[in-house]
Design a protein around this nucleic acid. Structure first.
Length: 235
DNA sequence: GGCCAGGCCGGTG
DNA sequence: CACCGGCATGGC
């Protein structure tokens, strides 16, 4: 309860404000079969379509755990060059050589094991089955469900927690399921909106609502009590 | 050079 | 159950 603000903006109002200032983010970035560089596909919510594109999304979700997308993306590129962006080839590599390919993503030994665990999995995809795999926690599982399988699931990450708690929408120590069910119940939408919502929150977290916040031109400064009080201090 | 990045696991109290 | 250290690279 501490830190929550009854007059905080609702999830759908936050979504609307972010979408109108930032526009569609076009997640998840995947490469179409004949393209040389990874592309975003704004407003094409049917991607990923092929099995290899889906695998790329899942591998990316694992590789970008606690890592910048840039470093994770470099590792994806290495896997592609090695023709190892699929379960069969991942399993054919020795763990050390797989770790070498994904070196740039950090925690490479752990992530090599995580990729192998995922590659070995051939059951029915669900939140429970994904969470049963070593190396897949709630955020990675939900990212896979949303961005690879188009399930209407809101993904919670460190940015989400920081933004929502500063706004007063949730407590500072709110846990994953608490934040997720808050959004699911107050903002029940399709995978397209959850896709954009998470991506927009990441954008806000990177550009404005950082650890050291930059409130000056934040799109939410009008409704954020935290930002207002900070701006008053500065002025 | 410290802090942070689109977390997760295993051990501890 | 809540908290913490370890994993590890690259950019600012």
């Amino acid at each position: 309860m501490f830190g929550m603000n009854p007059r905080a903006p609702l999830p759908k109002e936050i979504y609307a404000a972010l979408f109108s200032s930032f526009g569609p983010q076009g997640w998840w970035p995947v490469r179409a079969e004949n393209e040389k560089s990874a592309n975003y596909h704004p407003q094409n919510y049917s991607l990923p379509e092929t099995e290899s594109q889906k695998f790329e999304v899942c591998a990316g979700a694992i590789l970008c755990q606690n890592t910048s997308w840039k470093n994770a993306s470099k590792a994806i590129g290495k896997l592609r060059s090695a023709k190892a962006l699929n379960g069969r080839e991942i399993l054919a590599l020795s763990p050390p050589s797989l770790a070498k390919l994904i070196h740039s993503s950090g925690c490479h030994s752990q992530k090599a094991r995580k990729l192998r665990e995922f590659a070995e999995f051939n059951g029915k995809v669900s939140r429970e089955s994904l969470l049963g795999l070593w190396g897949i926690g709630p955020e990675t599982a939900d990212s896979i469900l949303l961005y690879a399988h188009h399930e209407p699931v809101f993904v919670v990450d460190a940015y989400t927690k920081r933004i929502f708690s500063r706004i007063g929408l949730c407590a500072k120590n709110a846990d994953y399921r608490e934040i997720q069910s808050l959004v699911h119940s107050k903002f029940s939408v399709s995978h397209r909106e959850y896709n954009e919502f998470h991506a927009l929150l990441v954008k806000l977290g990177k550009d404005y609502c950082r650890a050291k916040p930059v409130c000056r031109n934040c799109p939410l400064k009008g409704e954020c009590a935290f930002g207002k009080s900070r701006l008053n201090e500065v002025l």
